[in-house]
């Protein structure tokens, strides 16, 4: 009845249960945090804007992004994945989301910054719909906890427009 095997088994089961319980609590404490990040995006330059030989429009931008994500960090935060998309509607597509820049932030100290960058991923439309197209920048963040449930949210910055002519 009280053999070594039984005791080891009971101890192991108890340890795993407690660990799972603590993980669940740690994940729950994240819901008590109500973050309020801020972001500002400026288009400094349109480097070039043209139609590819296959008929898709492509544009290259230089962006200035300044953001403050410090309130996203809690004790259970492993990293914040932050990225900026251009989002727009075309006659054929109800939604187009193009990632232009992303970053992985692993500590609160590095979560307030300003950078100037050209788009990291190519801004290509599926078709030729970018001339004069209205679009918005959306800053998304995905919080990866040390353990438990992941969180995501976004800020939409509307009212940007691409030029009417290729250049």
């Amino acid at each position: 009845m009280h053999s070594f095997g039984y005791r080891a088994n009971a101890l192991f089961t108890f340890a795993v249960t407690i660990l799972a319980f603590i993980c669940a609590i740690a994940s729950f404490t994240d819901t008590l945090n109500s973050p309020s990040p801020t972001v500002e995006v400026k288009v400094l330059n349109i480097n070039w804007f043209q139609k590819q030989p296959n008929g898709n429009d492509e544009v290259s931008l230089t962006l200035n992004i300044s953001t403050d994500l410090q309130t996203l960090f809690t004790w259970n935060t492993k990293q914040v994945f932050v990225f900026l998309t251009a989002e727009y509607v075309t006659p054929k597509h109800a939604l187009n989301q193009i990632s232009l820049w992303d970053g992985i932030i692993q500590s609160k100290e590095h979560s307030k910054f300003t950078i100037t960058t050209s788009n990291k991923y190519r801004f290509i439309d599926q078709g030729s719909n970018l001339r004069g197209r209205e679009f918005n920048f959306t800053l998304h963040w995905h919080v990866m906890p040390k353990t438990g449930k992941m969180f995501a949210n976004k800020i939409v910055l509307p009212g940007y427009r691409l030029p009417e002519e290729y250049r």
Partner: peptide, 19 residues
């Protein structure tokens, strides 16, 4: 990292990337 969703039938084209 990229999504193109059709307006008429909701079909999506997505592109992925490992962080």
């Amino acid at each position: 990292i990229k999504v193109h969703e059709r307006g008429d039938n909701g079909e999506v084209d997505v592109l992925t990337k490992g962080d």
